[in-house]
C-alpha cells in the first residue's frame, strides 16, 4: 500500500515533468564493450569537429546492446548498437516484431584476439590451436576412449612448451570473445589434432563431437573471466604461470606487462590480422536503426564519420588504438551513404 502511494505520487510528479522533456538531439549508442573504446574515440572526435553534440556511448555487451536496440523505434530507444559479432537471426526477428525493420549493418574493422602471459614469466612464445585444445578440453581422446583431461603441465602436451602448470584465463561465456575462442582455437585445434575424427570414428555424432571439442575443462585450470581484460591482467599479474586471452588493443596498451605468443607460428599484428593469416580474429560491427536517420540529428554524419578513411583507415586513431582496419572500407562507406538496409543490401 505504501508502495502504491509512493509510486502514485512519484508518477504524478513525473507526468508533470514528462511534458517538459525536450526532443533528444544527441545520438545514443550502446553495446559491446570491445567496440566501446573505438566508439568513444569516434564520438569524441565527432563532437570536436561537428556542430552536433557528442554522442552518448554505453557499454554492457553485444547481446544486451542488441536487445535494447530491438526494443522499438522512438526517441527513448537507442539509435546504434555496437556488436562484436554479427546480429543473429533471432535478434533480427525480435527487432522486426518490435517494429525495427530497417537495420543498416556497418563493419568497422577487425579485432585480433591474442594469447599473452606475464612478461617475466615462463617462455610462452608460441602456441598452436591443437595445444590449446589439449590444454583446455574437458575430455580428450586417449586410446580411442574419451577420458577426463589428464594434462597438468604445458610441457606434457608438447616438449617445446615450458614446464609450467596449465593455468588459463579465458573470457567468460557472456563475452563475444569466448565464441571466437571456442570456434577458432578449440574447434580448430580439435580438428587439427585429429581428436574430432577419432570421436566421430568412435561413434559420437558430429554435433556432439563439436560440442565436446568446445567444452572447457572445469577442474580449475581454466578460469572464466566474466569481467573485462583489466581483470584478466590482474590475474596474470598475480600468477606467473597464467596465460590470458586479450584483445590486441588491450595488449598494445599494456606491452610493458605482457608478452604475446604466436598462434600457429604467426605473430598477431595489425598486418597479419588484416591479411587473415593470424587465425584468431573477428569482425566488429555496429547496427543503425534506419528509421532514426533524419530524425535524430547527426546520426548519419556520425556513422559516416566513423568509417571515414581518416578515422577507421589504417592511419587513423582507431588503428592507432588497436583496430585492424577493414580493407573493404569504401564498400562500407557506400552502404551508409546509400542507407542500404540489411535486407536490401545483401
Amino acid at each position: 500500500m505504501m508502495n502504491a502511494k509512493l509510486t502514485a505520487s512519484t508518477l504524478a510528479i513525473l507526468a508533470a515533468s514528462a511534458t517538459v522533456a525536450v526532443a533528444r538531439d544527441q545520438v545514443q549508442v550502446a553495446g559491446s564493450s570491445t567496440v566501446l573504446p573505438y566508439a568513444s574515440i569516434v564520438a569524441e572526435a565527432f563532437g570536436e569537429n561537428f556542430d552536433f553534440p557528442t554522442p552518448v556511448v554505453e557499454s554492457g555487451g553485444s547481446s544486451a546492446g542488441l536487445k535494447r536496440f530491438c526494443e522499438g523505434v522512438g526517441e527513448n530507444t537507442i539509435d546504434i548498437a555496437n556488436s562484436s559479432r554479427k546480429i543473429r537471426e533471432g535478434e533480427v526477428e525480435a527487432c522486426a516484431a518490435a517494429g525495427v525493420t530497417d537495420i543498416i549493418e556497418v563493419r568497422i574493422g577487425y579485432d585480433g584476439i591474442v594469447f599473452a602471459s606475464q612478461i617475466d614469466g615462463p617462455e610462452f612464445t608460441a602456441f598452436t590451436p591443437d595445444q590449446w585444445y589439449k590444454a583446455m578440453a574437458g575430455e580428450v581422446m586417449v586410446d580411442g576412449a574419451l577420458t577426463a583431461n589428464p594434462y597438468t603441465k604445458w610441457s606434457e602436451i608438447d616438449a617445446s612448451l615450458p614446464d609450467a602448470e596449465i593455468m588459463a584465463f579465458i573470457p567468460g561465456t557472456k563475452h563475444g570473445t569466448r565464441e571466437v575462442f571456442e570456434e577458432k582455437v578449440l574447434l580448430a585445434g580439435c580438428e587439427a589434432s585429429g581428436a574430432m575424427e577419432a570421436m566421430v570414428a568412435s561413434g559420437v555424432t558430429e554435433d556432439d563431437a563439436e560440442d565436446k571439442c568446445m567444452s572447457v575443462r572445469t577442474d580449475g585450470r581454466s578460469v572464466d573471466i566474466d569481467g573485462d581484460y583489466t581483470e584478466t591482467l590482474a590475474r596474470i599479474d598475480a600468477n606467473p604461470n597464467g596465460v590470458g586471452v586479450f584483445g590486441l588493443a588491450f595488449y598494445e596498451n599494456n606491452q610493458d606487462k605482457l608478452k604475446v605468443a604466436t598462434m600457429g607460428g604467426i605473430e598477431p599484428t595489425v598486418e597479419t590480422i588484416s591479411t587473415g593469416n593470424y587465425p584468431v580474429s573477428r569482425p566488429l560491427y555496429f547496427y543503425i536503426k534506419a528509421a532514426h536517420l533524419g530524425v535524430i540529428p547527426g546520426l548519419k554524419e556520425y556513422a559516416q564519420f566513423f568509417v571515414a578513411d581518416e578515422i577507421a583507415g589504417p592511419d587513423g586513431p582507431l588503428a592507432e588504438y588497436g583496430l585492424v582496419s577493414d580493407p573493404e572500407l569504401s564498400g562500407t562507406q557506400a552502404i551508409i551513404e546509400n542507407e542500404e538496409t540489411m535486407a536490401s543490401g545483401s
Binding site: 515533468s17 517538459v20 522533456a21 525536450v22 544527441q26 545514443q28 550502446a30 566501446l36 566508439a39 568513444s40 564520438a43 569524441e44 563532437g47 553534440p53 557528442t54 552518448v56 556511448v57 554505453e58 557499454s59 554492457g60
Partner: peptide, 24 residues
C-alpha cells in the same frame, strides 16, 4: 544506474536545471 543508461561515455555537460535534468 547501470540499467538506466547512466554508465556511459558522456562528454557534453548537461545544461542548467530544469533542462539539464533531462540531458545525458
Amino acid at each position: 544506474l547501470l540499467l538506466i543508461g547512466m554508465v556511459a561515455f558522456v562528454r557534453e555537460y548537461p545544461s542548467a536545471p530544469p533542462e539539464g535534468f533531462f540531458e545525458p
